[in-house]
Design a protein around this nucleic acid. Structure first.
Lengths: 218, 218
DNA sequence: CCTCTTACCTACTGCGGAGTAAGAATACGT
DNA sequence: ACGTATTCTTACTCCGCAGTAGGTAAGAGG
């Protein structure tokens, strides 16, 4: 605990890069991309500023690296939490659980991905939109499989894509809401969303759809 | 069309304020809050910079004013598009249609509200979060009414609130997705979301819920 | 025609913070 | 011991841009 721990210096590059990325995720999640100062990142990382530029490039590069790393972690958590040989509904269920578990365990990562990355229109949209597209495609595939299994052709592939987009957004929003209600278990939140999307979607496939009761065809 | 329209000057304050707000919404939606320069706002508005400061205060104040105005327009569009004497499902339906119609007609407003305002953690969160809370509360009330009408007590008011949060998020995400698929009619998009949430929620209320098939209680 | 208020402008200042130059200190090979 | 490569720092520069000082002109009222 001595203040003069200055002799712990000279770590290999790999370690420093990880420290910097960890600090950057934290700072970006707290202040947002623009309000985050490189000086603060360097301070939190316990490293001087030129190191960041030497190892990870400009502020944009640093942010993109954060996005890439965290998005990969998230996707790996989801994909890795799902067994490929299960029914579509079980796959979706396990995916949702993995997703919420990740959010609960990595709130800072989540804030960076959800709030910050979306807002910055620049070079990050590629990284982020790509990841988001992968997520939507993943869900879309499950929905399509679930639908065809129930006897529906793939003539309305547009609607499953829209459903997938809606589900992803619902998941994001629900995760945000969940941050303010931490006492609720992961399983419960996941089951809410599961029911919302799967049962609602199931009804839609089976033809028991909701339609306006009267003359509001517009 | 003469370039020398310089003699159209000296407009009353009200008009200038509207011009400035219009320009600000446009510029903020294009570049984001931080990348937006007050000089560009003034240029687009056809007014010099000090006017903005004289009439609407600092950059933060200006942005807050944008949020306030656009959020009010959105809420008015939704509430105004719903007849209070209808059944809950019809109210939700009409609300969704109004929402999507607003987004289609005011893309810039939507970008400012959805993408920019959320990301800025500062003094805007109050404005925005308040509006978002109002939206969630509105939906929540509908869900509760729909649920009690079907025989469910309000013992699980938490789950309806979560549902409402999920629905709002699904709406936001779906609206974003819709921006890339403008050929789809408002009615169709709205009905997708309506089915997703209402039928899924209906099943949940009636007890026909999805549950993990095997031993994955976790 | 004179004056007072209000709409409006050009042309600056100040600062926060991204990015860097130039060098110090430590490990490592021979 | 002696270079040499690598880690790491202090101490700057430089610029974009929010915010302003100070001045001009156009109506309104006498």
């Amino acid at each position: 605990m001595s203040v003069d721990d200055r002799r712990v210096k000279r770590l290999p590059r790999e370690v420093r890069e990880k420290q910097i990325l960890d600090a950057a995720v934290q700072v970006f999640s707290e202040h947002g991309y623009h309000n985050a100062a490189m000086d603060e990142v360097s301070e939190v990382a316990g490293v001087s500023k030129p190191m960041i530029y030497a190892y990870l490039g400009s502020k944009e590069d640093l942010f993109a690296a954060c996005i890439r790393r965290e998005a990969n972690l998230l996707m790996e958590a989801i994909v890795g939490g799902v067994s490929a040989d299960l029914e579509p509904d079980m796959q979706l269920w396990m995916g949702l659980r993995s997703f919420f578990e990740f959010v609960a365990a990595n709130k800072a990562s989540w804030r960076v991905l959800h709030r910050q990355a979306i807002a910055q229109a620049g070079p990050f949209s590629e990284e982020l939109m790509g990841m988001r597209s992968r997520a939507i495609a993943l869900v879309d595939a499950l929905l399509v499989r679930g639908a065809t299994r129930k006897g529906m052709d793939e003539h309305s592939t547009t609607s499953t894509e829209a459903m997938a987009a809606a589900l992803v957004g619902a998941g994001e929003s629900l995760a945000d809401w969940w941050l303010d209600h931490p006492e609720i278990p992961t399983r419960v939140v996941a089951s809410w969303l599961m029911n919302l999307v799967w049962m609602g979607f199931g009804d839609l496939v089976e033809g028991t759809t909701w339609t306006p009761s009267a003359d509001h065809a517009g």
